[in-house]
């Protein structure tokens, strides 16, 4: 393939790379409002949340200007006294406007999420989320476990078609100009 002919494909690869680099994350909005002097929207993924790793993202602004430097601390307190906390970083977020942190919520039930923005204790707010029990691993992987069924059905359909075609007119590709052209 000449260089000129490969230009569209190189452009295609470049676009794919750029898109992947710029791919954003987020999830469902769980809380939005004033955190002291800041406007913040908190996103959560996956939805609905289930016990295990949960990704929290925050979109932070002050007077309409995105705030990307102020430190954001997140703490989650569970129903049985357990707790976990972390710092939200833009490096953990695919979307450059957001900052994210992954917390492992070990059990199901109601968890209180507290977010502290910066050092000022007034810039604080908390809310509750309901966490479902972790589904058994086979259930979350079910789509990956049943792929063989349609493939098997297609193979059966193929066998039926081949048998019918043989019965009707011998080898299928010798008598069918269209198929023979494409499939030669």
């Amino acid at each position: 393939m000449s260089f000129r002919a490969s230009i569209p494909w190189l452009a295609c690869g470049l676009a794919v790379a750029c898109c992947l680099r710029a791919q954003a994350d987020g999830g469902a909005v769980v809380d939005r409002g004033r955190y002291g002097a800041y406007d913040a929207t908190i996103f959560l993924a996956p939805v609905p949340p289930s016990a295990g790793a949960i990704d929290f993202s925050i979109l932070l602004s002050r007077s309409g200007e995105p705030q990307l430097i102020v430190p954001v601390h997140i703490r989650a307190e569970g129903p049985n006294g357990s707790w976990t906390e972390g710092q939200m970083h833009d490096a953990d977020s695919g979307n450059r406007l957001l900052r994210a942190c992954s917390l492992t919520l070990g059990s199901s039930g109601t968890w209180r999420i507290s977010i502290q923005i910066g050092e000022n204790t007034a810039d604080f707010r908390s809310f509750e989320i309901s966490v479902n029990p972790t589904p058994p691993p086979w259930r979350t992987s079910l789509p990956w476990m049943i792929l063989w069924i349609p493939v098997a059905l297609l193979l059966v359909a193929r066998e039926i078609l081949v048998a019918g075609q043989r019965r009707r007119r011998g080898a299928w590709d010798d008598s069918n100009r269209f198929s023979a052209t494409i499939l030669r």
Partner: peptide, 9 residues
Amino acid sequence: QALGPFIAS
């Protein structure tokens, strides 16, 4: 072998 029979059907 796989698509031929479908296309010709």
